[in-house]
């Protein structure tokens, strides 16, 4: 049994450990781990879509590392720039920067550090790959967040383009050029973005309104937004399906992809005909699952 003196000796170590754990948890929140993970999965799927079966694990690991840094960096920079909006929205007010747990300066240094390291690593690996990674970061932080997000709901297109860059980057790293499959996969992500973002815009309508961020539901109404979501779902599934066919995915995987796509059409259709908050948020969650599964199928093909 530990004596009182031993307990006192251990105490400072456990305090340091606890402080480090809290800090790490705070910084982890800054990078939106789920979103970053999903984008990372698209990048890796883009890479293995050409290099099937995967034999070059060191390149795959370098791709994962550089993309993780660049995506995390752009997310942190967005959080720094949008801290005033986040402070006005109930959903985001507790984030580390608006809540004052991390200063904007620290966030900026961290964001720039992660972004520059990620892009530089990418450029060293292959210039075109690094350029695509940089394009994703530039479209996301400068064009989407800093320039258009507060002006027009159409900014979502640029958000979508930047969202499609990781999968294109992965493909470029494998192929050495921008090809049709890479563009189709990126188009799939671009068309998937409205399903993901607009369902969220509807769920947190008041939050976005209060923060003064123009969204499709606030500018064009719920009906038009739902129609766009349904159309975008069809386009996303079509792009992914055609890309998967060109990649040469097994028929079994293609069948499963078709089934999952039909599930998304079904939910988008129900949301259009008989809208409800439950179905709307269900579609949001299903869309994320759909994207993850699509990328997983491409990854599984490589094993």
């Amino acid at each position: 049994m530990a004596t009182s003196a031993q307990t006192h000796k251990l105490a400072p170590q456990s305090v340091v450990f606890r402080v480090m754990k809290t800090k790490l948890r705070l910084y982890w929140k800054l990078i939106k781990s789920l979103q970053t993970g999903l984008l990372l999965a698209t990048g890796m799927a883009g890479f293995v879509s050409f290099a099937c079966p995967v034999t070059n694990f060191s390149t795959l690991a370098a791709l994962a590392g550089s993309l993780f840094l660049a995506i995390s960096g752009s997310t942190v920079l967005n959080m720094v720039y949008d801290r005033d909006i986040d402070a006005r929205m109930g959903r985001t007010t507790g984030r580390p920067i608006p809540s004052g747990q991390i200063s904007p300066r620290t966030g900026l240094i961290l964001g720039l550090g992660l972004s520059i390291t990620g892009v530089a690593w990418g450029l060293l690996m292959q210039p075109l790959y690094g350029l695509v990674v940089f394009a994703g970061l530039f479209f996301d932080v400068v064009v989407y967040t800093m320039w258009l997000k507060r002006r027009t709901p159409w900014s979502i297109i640029w958000g979508g383009i930047s969202g499609g860059m990781p999968v294109l980057a992965g493909r470029v790293l494998a192929v050495g050029e921008i090809d049709a499959v890479g563009l189709l996969l990126a188009l799939g992500v671009l068309c998937w973005i409205p399903t993901h973002i607009m369902t969220f815009n509807m769920r947190y309508y008041d939050d976005y309104k209060r923060a003064g961020v123009p969204t499709f539901p606030s500018e064009y109404g719920y009906g038009v937004t739902r129609l766009i979501i349904a159309l975008a779902s069809v386009l996303a599934a079509g792009s992914f399906g055609y890309a998967a066919f060109l990649i040469g995915l097994d028929w079994g995987y293609l069948r499963l992809l078709s089934v999952l796509s039909v599930g998304m059409f079904f939910l988008a259709g129900v949301s259009l005909i008989k809208p409800s908050e439950k179905v709307n948020f269900g579609l949001f969650k299903y869309a994320s699952l759909y994207m993850l599964n699509t990328m997983l199928l491409i990854l599984l093909q490589a094993i």
């Binding site: 069948r255 078709s258 089934v259 999952l260 039909v262 599930g263 079904f266 299903y286 699952l289």
Partner: peptide
């Protein structure tokens, strides 16, 4: 497929 979607 319907079983899968139903479960999800």
């Amino acid at each position: 497929g319907v079983l899968l979607i139903a479960g999800l």
